[in-house]
Computed example of a mutant assay.
Amino acid sequence: MALRIKSHWWNDEHERSLPEIASALAFIAWRIAVDKAINLHCERFVYDHDRQRLDVIEEYLVFLIQIADRLSHGLFDDEQRRTLITAFAGKLFEHVQDNAQDLLGPGSYGSLFIERLNARSGDYCGFQFTDEGPSYAFLRHLGFEIQRLMGASEQNRWVIDQVMDKDGWDAYKRFAKAFRDLFD
């Protein structure tokens, strides 16, 4: 079943703040990341446990935060961009914390997500992003991190290719369209 993403405001005449837009982006990013984690399972890649599935979702979320940061470059000044991306990451922190607690029980899951985001941001900053989208290296890094999380077992040996060639690119296209729609 195709993922349906609503990315237009109900009332177009109402002015939206950057934190309101960030909240909508976080909801959309969460849905895309979950969809991509489910798709890996549908493509016969194997998760050993729920924590591993959540880790894959978080990798997609980190990737989408990087995409949002790149898409917002040129649209906003540095302060507005920082406001948007910080609010976006904060809302994703809440999604991760709430969903992981529901699935795994009490714990500080959101802070682990922020640690992952901070670690990966240094990696992603060196990758190119053009008007056509993320570079090969950008997508390869996402695939590499997901493969590392899922392990190199026989069933998961080709997960990096699935992420680089299909799922990562699709996640980018869906998110970029929603991002642009929310600012129209």
Rank of each mutant, 00 (worst) to 15 (best):
Y124I: 04
Q66H: 15
F76T: 06
F27I: 10
I114K: 05
E20V: 04
L40G: 05
F144K: 13
R70P: 02
I160Q: 14
H73W: 08
F129T: 02
L104K: 13
K6P: 05
F45K: 10
D12Y: 12
H95I: 02
L64V: 03
L92D: 00
L117P: 07
H41S: 13
T130E: 06
N39T: 15
V56L: 08
F144L: 13
T86C: 02
E132M: 12
A89P: 01
I57P: 08
L103M: 13
K36Y: 06
E13L: 14
L25T: 00
M164W: 09
R70T: 05
R120C: 13
I65H: 03
W169K: 15
L54T: 01
L103C: 05
R81D: 12
M150L: 10
V96E: 01
A24F: 05
L117M: 08
F76G: 06
F88A: 01
E58W: 08
G143H: 07
A22R: 00
A152P: 07
Y172G: 00
D131Y: 03
A2T: 08
L61P: 01
A24K: 07
I21M: 12
K36P: 02
L18N: 03
Y60N: 03
I160G: 10
Y124P: 02
L54Q: 10
A26Q: 03
G105M: 07
V34R: 13
E94K: 04
F183N: 06
Y47M: 04
